[in-house]
């Protein structure tokens, strides 16, 4: 987990052109991830977790949205690329080959009329240039690797013949077939029950132990993130409000939103705890973000919170927060960058 970052995202801005105006979905997101590292991403519904990940893989349809700013430097095997500037053609060599993606709903995410073997083989044929026979036997190997019993028979089965958890294993096999170095999993266990969820998490840990696979794991579930991640990003209103090592985050949360999240978890451990129960509603994304997105709901808010927008600022080594207020010291924090402010104030 040491060394150079595999992916460095800087100032990502993604907007949608909806019928009733622009939706400012992602308002400057920056983070990085190193080889072999697991990065947990949490945040309530609509905070921009999925849009961030889709933006990185060029999966936002140009008919509905666009990436307005930012860079995402990825150290591909063939040299460094900026994911935010690739053409659809160039993405063909990144998706699947360099970055694999696993989605939330394993039944709708698999083609119902294609055998799982062929769905895995497609990636192998595309990226590794394997023929039919070779890719088939590699697909069987992949199924075995993700823990599907009797893989040489199951390879010819269709998605509906698998249980929910097994389907998600198949999804992981597809995502990892061509040997990517980064796997982005967008709420991969949300649709699964707790036991199956634990099995999938164990599987990913095993797979990571075998290689230097870096994983971005998006989740609603703080318990899942606590058990899996090395580092955690907390998202709110299309921004990252806090970023820290997993232990640091849970023991010493700095941002009022993160504290609210952790406080809302009942005392008996973290497992299964969903983000919820902070009074108020998520911010409107109709306008460009020029104040703290949490200002409406924050019990620590001060005057400037509604005028200026705090940037993600380092507090200690590998711990950053985007907040003007130091809760523990009960005073304004020094040196917090102001990255936007409302005009005429």
């Amino acid at each position: 987990m040491t060394g150079e970052a595999l992916l460095t995202v800087d100032g990502l801005v993604t907007k949608f052109d909806a019928a009733d105006g622009v939706v400012h979905a992602i308002n400057g997101v920056s983070f990085d991830i190193r080889p072999g590292e697991t990065l947990g991403v949490v945040g309530e519904s609509g905070s921009g977790k999925s849009v961030t990940m889709m933006s990185l893989l060029g999966l936002i349809p140009s008919s509905v949205g666009r990436i307005a700013a930012g860079t995402a430097r990825y150290r591909a095997t063939s040299g460094e690329v900026d994911l935010l500037k690739l053409s659809e053609r160039q993405f063909g060599r990144i998706r699947g080959r360099e970055i694999g993606m696993v989605f939330q709903d394993p039944i709708s995410s698999l083609n119902p009329v294609m055998t799982v073997g062929r769905q895995i083989a497609e990636s192998l044929q595309r990226h590794l240039g394997l023929g039919r026979r070779e890719s088939r036997s590699r697909a069987i190997e992949m199924l075995a690797r993700v823990g599907i019993a009797d893989p040489s028979h199951r390879v010819d089965d269709y998605p509906h013949e698998f249980s929910g958890g097994m389907r998600q294993r198949v999804m992981i096999a597809i995502a990892l077939a061509a040997g990517p170095r980064l796997m982005i999993a967008d709420e991969p266990t949300t649709a699964l029950d707790v036991t199956v969820q634990a099995q999938i998490m164990a599987l990913v840990r095993e797979l990571q132990a075998e290689s230097e696979l870096a994983v971005i794991w998006v989740s609603h579930d703080l318990g899942v993130v606590a058990g899996l991640a090395d580092r955690v990003l907390v998202m709110y209103g299309g921004t990252i409000v806090e970023s820290a090592g997993v232990d640091d985050l849970f023991e010493n949360p700095q941002h009022p939103y993160t504290r609210g999240l952790l406080a809302s978890i009942p005392g008996t451990g973290l497992a299964g705890s969903r983000l919820a129960s902070i009074p108020g509603t998520p911010p409107s994304l109709q306008h460009e973000l020029k104040l703290c997105p949490f200002a409406d709901r924050c019990s620590h808010a001060i005057d400037r919170c509604a005028r200026e927008r705090p940037g993600l600022t380092p507090i200690s080594a590998d711990h950053s927060s985007a907040c003007f207020w130091d809760i523990d010291a009960s005073r304004q924090r020094d040196g917090v960058a102001v990255i936007a402010q409302r005009e005429g104030m």
Binding site: L59, S123, R126, H127, I174
Partner: peptide
């Protein structure tokens, strides 16, 4: 707009392959 089409794209398949096979 089906999810599995997004999966096919996320595998890096060429546009034509996604259109035809999926």
């Amino acid at each position: 707009n089906e999810d599995f089409v997004r999966t096919a794209r996320s595998k890096g398949l060429a546009r034509r392959a996604v259109a035809r096979r999926h």
